[in-house]
Design a protein around this nucleic acid. Structure first.
Lengths: 133, 133
DNA sequence: CGGGATCCGACGGGATACTG
DNA sequence: CAGTATCCCGTCGGATCCCG
């Protein structure tokens, strides 16, 4: 019995992929992309850019979002320190959301994405038409 | 029988959400975000930033990606005019991928995201720790 | 070497109903 | 008003096998 490799090539690749996944999980850029690429995050950030808004106001401003996703998205943004949640005890209750300085510092990044998109989207569409033909 | 509204409030909201979804589908910024937020897109863009690479090279460079997703992602990027696919007839076949000027113009945007992430990720992590406590 | 085709499990997210 | 809880279905993406 000679020195057989303990792991097959497949097992090695699986392991490497696991390690790469772990690396990506730590990668700051990856984490931020996962955040702002969320369907509702950039919409909410922009909605709050002009000042604080109540839950129901946000629900109206970002008309397409469901209650579940609105709440869930706001929670994660609060957890990440990008916005604050202020509860005013009253009847009925009042909850205001506002950007933190950290959240506000993210606006230019979102704007950069938006700018590239609006400048080059027509080229992309043209490329698609050409490709599909 | 008085003037009853034909649609209930629920139906109206459903319609509005449909309209909003349609609006988002057309929104350039949304489309771009959907692209670059794809798990592998920014990785591939960066991998090709230093010059063209073959399929197998990309497969090794971006170690975590599966064949399926690598091919699929490259196809959509090609369709969007962000990179080119060059087949060299030979045995075995050789396929090279390279960024187009349009794809290259996207690099600064990805870099902006990366910069914010690396600068502020620690604040985000701190905020999470505080929130979880 | 560079894919295409197929199957299938996980999960993201909408709809709905209920609550302090 | 501002949520929470549950169900449920569609899609994404990995695994696997096959091909020119």
């Amino acid at each position: 019995m000679t020195a057989m490799p303990t792991r097959t090539a497949d097992q090695q690749r699986t392991q490497e992929r696991a390690r790469y996944d772990a690396y990506l999980a730590e990668c700051p850029a990856r984490q931020l992309l996962d955040r702002i690429s969320d369907k509702w995050v950039s919409l909410l950030l922009n909605a709050l850019a002009d000042g604080p808004q109540r839950y129901s106001e946000l629900h109206r401003t970002v008309a397409g979002v469901s209650q579940k996703m609105l709440t869930q998205t706001l929670r994660t943004l609060e957890r990440d320190g990008l916005l604050t949640r202020t509860v005013t005890a009253a009847v009925p209750v009042r909850v205001d959301y506002a950007l933190t300085p950290l959240g506000r510092s993210l606006l230019p990044v979102v704007a950069a994405v938006k700018d590239w998109a609006e400048t080059h989207i027509e080229e992309v569409h043209a490329a698609r038409r050409a490709y599909d033909a």
